[in-house]
């Protein structure tokens, strides 16, 4: 089935000049440390903690999100933290292009590649690395420090490989995220 058109009320979302649509009811801490690639949608209730940054001065990017991403309602994006050489710090987090993160998912990964779909109510542990072209099913728990290689489908708790994605998945996900962005339009009133 084709995706239905999702309407939102114009007053609820801010649209930036690069095409990002950010809900006013999303919780963005430390917005100066967050970079959104163009045409990314942050739905109501999503939380991005840009205030947890690396110790040290200077303007650092804490969370960078790519283009055509879709962060659903209630998802939480938090940078991961650990002690390294005696220093405790939070580390920057990078999310690629064309990434869909489902409702209620908590993401603390170190990097998420491009063309990734993450289901609802997932938990991506600290310093997990999700490479390009992956799919994480609903209700999956990815333990900390896990590496999810390309073209895998992970499911369960702890997340295990259950299947492989077809070779055409990059085009499928790209078309899907672009379509999702195109169908997210303000209500006519």
């Amino acid at each position: 089935m084709d995706l239905p058109i999702i309407h939102y009320s114009k007053s609820e979302y801010i649209e930036t000049d690069t095409g990002n649509k950010v809900s006013r009811k999303s919780v963005i801490c430390g917005s100066q440390n967050i970079v959104l690639g163009g045409k990314t949608i942050l739905q109501t209730g999503s939380v991005i903690r840009g205030d947890l940054k690396r110790t040290g001065t200077g303007h650092a990017v804490v969370v960078s999100v790519g283009r055509y991403c879709f962060l659903s309602q209630g998802c939480v994006i938090r940078p991961p933290c650990k002690t390294y050489k005696g220093v405790f710090s939070y580390y920057p987090m990078k999310i690629g292009d064309h990434v869909i993160i489902g409702e209620g998912t908590i993401v603390q990964a170190a990097t998420i590649g491009s063309f990734v779909t993450i289901g609802k109510n997932c938990v991506i542990g600290r310093f997990a690395i999700i490479k390009d072209c992956c799919k994480i099913e609903d209700n999956t728990v990815i333990p900390p420090n896990t590496v999810v290689p390309s073209f895998s489908i992970y499911k369960g708790s702890p997340g295990k490989l259950v299947d492989e994605l077809p070779e055409s998945i990059q085009e499928i996900y790209e078309a899907r995220t672009k379509d999702r962005y195109a169908k997210f339009i303000p209500r006519a009133d």
Partner: peptide, 22 residues
């Protein structure tokens, strides 16, 4: 054994950083 020292450093960090934004 690591956990306590990691925890103390976490607390220190939060005490320093959170007041800047909240």
């Amino acid at each position: 054994a690591n956990q306590m020292s990691v925890h103390m450093r976490h607390l220190e960090y939060l005490m320093q950083t959170l007041p800047k934004f909240n």
